[in-house]
Design a protein around this nucleic acid. Structure first.
Lengths: 206, 206
DNA sequence: AAGTTGTACGAACGATCGTACTATTACTTT
DNA sequence: AAAGTAATAGTACGATCGTTCGTACAACTT
C-alpha cells in the first residue's frame, strides 16, 4: 500500500516531477531519450535547470524515470483495456487495436514512445537500453500469451506458432507507426489492420 | 563522364572524405545522425576537427553526405544484386533475402542504417528528414514494383494488392532488424524468412 | 518557538558542441 | 622559379551540455 502523503512539500514535489516527466516523454518520443536535455526541459516548463536536475540527480536517472512514465501511459491506453476483455481472440484483437489507436492518436507526438526508444538504443549498451529491452520483452510476452490463449481456445488454426504469429503481428504495428510518421500517411494503419485481420482469420476450407 | 583527377591534392582529399564518411555511417547507425559529431569523427580518424569540418562546411551537410554514402552501400549490397536477377518472384525473393543478409551481416554495426535514421527523424522536420524519407520512398517503390512484376507474371495470387503486400514484407524486414539488435537474437531473421516464405507462396488448393 | 526537512533557485564548473578565422603544407599551373 | 590552389592544422568563439554548490524559503516536527 502506498499512502498518500499529507506533506505539502512532497505533494508539490510530486506534482512538479509529474509535470517534468509528462513533458519528458513527449520530447523523448520526438527527439529521442538522448536528445532530451535538462536545460530544454527547464526552459519549456519555466523552472530552473537545477530544479529539474535535483529531481533525478543524474541525466540517466531522468531517462529511466521517463521510460517508467511512458510505460504507465502505455499501460493505461493499451494494456489495461485489453486485459479487461475475456482471454481469447477478442482480447488479442482488442490489444492490437488499442495499440494502433494509441499510436495513431499520437498519445506521444512522436508516435509510439517505445518504438522510438528501441530504435535509438538497439545498438548501445547500458542501463537505459536494458530498461527499454525489458519493456519490449514484456510487451512481446503479453502479445504472445494472448495469441496462445486464443489458439488454445480453438479460435486460431491448430498449427499456429504463437511466437511466429506474435512476431508478424507486432511487425505490422511497428511498420504502421513508422510509415505513418515518416510519410504523414494514416493509410499505413489501414494496411496494418488489413494484415492483422487476414492473419487472425480462422482458415476455413473453400 | 567523370574524369579521374590527376591532381594529387584532390585525390588525397577524396580519400579522406571517403574515410570520414565510412566512419560516419558506422557511427550514425549506432548513435544516430544527430549523435554523430565532428569532434568525435576527428578523434576517431586522428585528424583535426577543422579538417573534418572543412570537407562539409556544416554539420547538416555532413549528415546529408552520410546519408548518400549509406545509400551507395545499400545499393551495393542489396539493390544491384537483386536487379541482376530476372524480374518476377526470383528477383523479389533475392531482394528480400539480400536485405536480410545485409542487416544480419551488420554491414553497419547498428543494423540497417536507414531503419535507424528513419526512426530517428520520423517526427522531426528539415532537410535531413526529407532526404531520409525520399530514400525510404524509393525503397518502397522498388519493393512494390518487384511485387507487381511477380504478380503480372502470374507468380503470385491474382488478387494480390502490391502496396499491401509490400507493406507486410518490409514490416517483416524491419522487425527482424530491430528485434535481432535489441535482443541479440538471430532467430528474428528466421522468423522473417518464415513469414516471407508463407506470404510469397502461391496459394494452391488443398 | 526552534529546529529539521524538502523544494527550488542562481551562479559557476569543465567539457563538448558547431562554426569561424588564420596559418601551414603540398601539389599544380604558368 | 613564381604564383596559385586545395587539403589540413591550429586556435578561438559563443552556446549548450551535465553537474556541483551554496542559499532561500516553505512546510513539517518537536
Amino acid at each position: 500500500m502506498i499512502e498518500a502523503s499529507t506533506d505539502g512539500r512532497i505533494q508539490r514535489g510530486d506534482a512538479t516531477r509529474r509535470a517534468i516527466l509528462r513533458r519528458a516523454v513527449d520530447i523523448a518520443s520526438v527527439e529521442g531519450l538522448d536528445g532530451l536535455s535538462i536545460g530544454r526541459l527547464a526552459t519549456d516548463l519555466q523552472v530552473s535547470k537545477s530544479g529539474v536536475f535535483a529531481h533525478f540527480g543524474a541525466k540517466q536517472e531522468l531517462q529511466l524515470a521517463t521510460i517508467r512514465a511512458a510505460r504507465a501511459i502505455v499501460d493505461d491506453h493499451v494494456v489495461r483495456p485489453a486485459l479487461e476483455v475475456a482471454p481469447g481472440l477478442d482480447r488479442l484483437r482488442t490489444l492490437l487495436d488499442r495499440w494502433l489507436r494509441y499510436s495513431q492518436d499520437r498519445v506521444f507526438p512522436g508516435g509510439c514512445f517505445f518504438f522510438a526508444a528501441q530504435a535509438e538504443f538497439d545498438a548501445r549498451p547500458g542501463p537505459v537500453r536494458d530498461a527499454i529491452t525489458e519493456s519490449g520483452s514484456q510487451w512481446t510476452r503479453l502479445v504472445e500469451s494472448c495469441v496462445r490463449e486464443a489458439a488454445q481456445l480453438g479460435e486460431l488454426a491448430a498449427d499456429t506458432d504463437p511466437a511466429q504469429l506474435c512476431f508478424e503481428l507486432t511487425a505490422f504495428l511497428d511498420a504502421a507507426n513508422l510509415f505513418s510518421l515518416l510519410h504523414d500517411d494514416p493509410l499505413a494503419y489501414e494496411r496494418a489492420r488489413v494484415a492483422i485481420r487476414a492473419r487472425l482469420r480462422f482458415p476455413t476450407p473453400g
